[in-house]
Design a protein around this nucleic acid. Structure first.
Length: 678
DNA sequence: AGCACGCCGACT
DNA sequence: GTCGGCGTGCTC
């Protein structure tokens, strides 16, 4: 069908197809803008769509062609937004429509009733009007910080900058200053600042407000109510928000006048989306900067090996902040790292003697301590001493953790839980013993070891109650807590002024993991934990318990030399031909039986093998995933690997989603590009 | 992903 | 003779 130009709109809708669908523009109506949000009929329903293109012809038969219902009263999404969603769809092997609709705030993903427009109007009402940027108050920057800022703002066009600075070296001040300088260029310029976690947004938001006062700033993360999220999104799209602060989903927020992107803690695994389209917000941030022709700043004390490789190859500018900036006048010294060899220091009641001593000393000085253990619950396993029974999840290939205070066994993978059995389910022996330690058991041990000390716990279980996390952290800041024990949750961002001792228990599982990325992650985690101590210039110690005291990672950590560690890792990856020397994609299969999942992947491998040879892509054998069964579903994976990203993508695209049809039992297929866990 | 169409078992 | 099971296939 060929008609007058501007009468056919190519519309992105949420269907798993590469191409947009064609719709007719209602006669008499003006041609919609590219990027316009609209409501279109799709099968029997009405869905939200995004106009990707407006043309005059279509290959769709007249009988099939439907008309756009109506346009939604928001400005068209910018061209760069369309390019970014298209890129994300192609790269992560999804339909463009799926990617585009998923990038909209939940409230706008499906058509609302007639109140829709009023809702939008109402959302606008709550937001600040556009404002001119006031002259930013100059901040005192160290020479290295000033150099970094100059480098970032002097760049014209696209450029990636890796801001490498130890904890407390003042990366945030560099972002803020660079933001101030870039915003000053144009009265409508916008910036995007990404952070890994929701919990980090309030404090960063406070710093942004302190620095920029009246500059309209919005936060965007999945913790917001749908209305608030849509309001912030709309403020960004309409140019009323000048600074957007957000978690990974915010990488897709439409910003018509974007001039700078900053990604804080760029190494953080939270940037990799785990559900739906499994994108890396950090990688997409770089792509977005390239599309927009603007600078992007990736900041970390422990950059991802991928970013490190880019910097070493000269593709990213490496901006180093060697000093610890002081916010208190006194030098922020950093903690001295000491390893405690568990071969020589036996644990008594879960704690070694040096740990008890260090904690007692900190308390005696009126200082605080953190105890980090990467396991929640009382113990990871409950065991029968008599027959060897171990608590396990009936639905997962995993142990069930013992939660003593609740009197339950819990699976941390699927949420299954059951009351603790009175006797061994296998042999009826009444003596069931917890094996290993989690946060709750350590909390208990600390209460015994440090009588009278005020002890708090911070983990997913302790913060289930609303505001519990905030209350615990406030108590810590107020000095009402002496020792805080917790998981990863206590490692991120918090600036505790009085902490002089940090204890790390049970780092060994990651130290000797078979996952090649485990050490890189452990280094980052430990750096972050250790960075919680000595922030206000207190002489501080970090004690790490291990059975591998001579491990090179611990030596590099003690020397505070991430660069040497990262260079070493990079050399090993080159030698072993692991990422980033090669690129990977993972074909995942899920089914009611492992045999079905594996069998399906064997079939896929057979289909791919010919093409794989000509593309020089390595196809491994299908294997069960590390967690081979989760929530009753068996999981297997097939690894594709190539030195050429193009070849890898070409082969991955050969995997036919239709090939699961008719299989009995049913198999679910998904492909993950650049998997982080293998 | 929805949602409808379609072809085989237990209900008023 | 119908309600509905979820297999299969399409959505401009």
């Amino acid at each position: 069908v060929v008609s007058e130009s501007g009468r056919i709109a190519r519309v992105l809708v949420d269907v798993p197809r590469a191409e947009p669908l064609d719709y007719a523009v209602a006669s008499g109506a003006p041609a919609p803008n590219v990027g316009a949000l609209c409501v279109v009929p799709l099968g029997a329903r009405k869905v939200v769509g995004v106009v990707a293109d407006v043309t005059g012809s279509t290959a769709v038969p007249v009988a099939k062609l439907k008309r756009i219902d109506r346009l939604i009263g928001v400005p068209p999404l910018p061209q760069g937004w369309l390019q970014l969603t298209k890129f994300a769809a192609d790269y992560y092997l999804h339909g463009w429509g799926e990617a585009a609709i998923a990038a909209l705030p939940p409230l706008l993903r499906r058509p609302a009733g007639p109140r829709h427009e009023t809702t939008l109007q109402h959302l606008r009402g709550n937001l600040p009007a556009p404002q001119a940027v006031p002259a930013a108050a100059p901040i005192e920057l160290l020479p290295a910080q000033r150099h970094a800022v100059e480098h970032i703002v002097a760049a014209t066009g696209f450029g990636s900058h890796l801001l490498f600075g130890v904890t407390g070296s003042g990366k945030t001040d560099v972002y803020l200053e660079a933001i101030a300088r870039r915003l000053a260029h144009a009265p409508d310029a916008q910036v995007l600042l990404l952070v890994p976690e929701i919990n980090l947004t309030p404090q960063l938001e406070a710093r942004v407000r302190a620095r920029f006062g009246s500059v309209p700033t919005v936060s965007l993360h999945s913790g917001l109510a749908d209305r608030a999220r849509a309001a912030a999104w709309l403020a960004a799209l309409e140019g009323r928000a000048r600074i957007v602060l957000g978690t990974r989903t915010a990488v897709f927020v439409p910003l018509p006048r974007l001039v700078l992107i900053c990604v804080d803690e760029e190494h953080d695994p939270s940037y990799k989306a785990g559900d739906g389209i499994r994108y890396s917000a950090r990688d997409l941030a770089v792509k977005r900067a390239q599309i927009e022709g603007i600078p992007v700043v990736l900041g970390s004390a422990t950059p991802s090996i991928e970013s490190w490789a880019h910097a070493r190859a000269g593709r990213y500018a490496l901006l180093q902040l060697p000093e610890r900036a002081s916010t208190t006048g006194r030098a922020a010294a950093g903690a001295r790292v000491e390893t405690l060899d568990l071969k020589h220091e036996p644990r008594e009641g879960g704690l070694t003697a040096p740990v008890r001593t260090a904690l007692a000393q900190a308390l005696a000085r009126g200082e605080q301590a953190l105890v980090f253990i990467n396991r929640r619950g009382y113990a990871p396993i409950l065991a029968c001493e008599s027959c060897g029974w171990l608590s396990s999840c009936p639905q997962c290939a995993a142990f069930a953790a013992f939660h003593r205070s609740e009197g339950r066994l819990r699976c941390h993978h699927c949420g299954w839980s059951v009351a603790v059995p009175r006797a061994c389910p296998s042999c009826s022996n009444q003596d069931l013993e917890p094996v290993g330690s989690g946060t709750q058991r350590i909390e208990e041990a600390l209460r015994v070891a440090l009588p009278g000390a005020r002890i708090a716990r911070l983990d997913r279980d302790s913060v289930r109650r609303k505001h519990a996390a905030r209350d615990t952290l406030q108590a810590m800041h107020a000095g009402d807590v002496d020792v805080m024990v917790g998981t990863q949750m206590l490692t991120k961002g918090h600036d505790f002024r009085r902490v002089s001792v940090v204890v790390v228990l049970n780092a060994d599982t990651q130290l000797v993991s078979h996952d090649f990325r485990a050490t890189e992650r452990l280094f980052a985690t430990l750096t972050q934990v250790i960075g919680r101590a000595g922030r206000a210039g207190l002489a501080s110690r970090a004690l790490i318990e291990t059975r591998f005291a001579r491990h090179p990672l611990l030596a590099a950590l003690a020397a505070n030399d991430y660069a040497a560690f990262a260079d070493g890792v990079l050399r090993e990856r080159q030698a072993a031909q692991l990422p980033p020397a090669v690129f990977q994609a993972l074909v995942g299969a899920e089914s009611r039986t492992m045999e079905a999942a594996l069998g399906f992947l064997r079939e896929i491998k057979a289909q791919l093998i010919g093409r794989a040879a000509s593309l020089a892509v390595k196809v491994y054998d299908p294997v069960p995933m590390t967690l081979s069964r989760r929530a009753g579903v068996f999981r297997a994976q097939l690894l594709l690997e190539s030195a050429a990203r193009g070849a890898l993508h070409a082969l991955a695209r050969e995997v036919d989603p239709e090939s699961t049809k008719g299989l009995r039992p049913a198999v679910r297929l998904r492909i993950e590009v650049d998997p982080q866990e293998i």
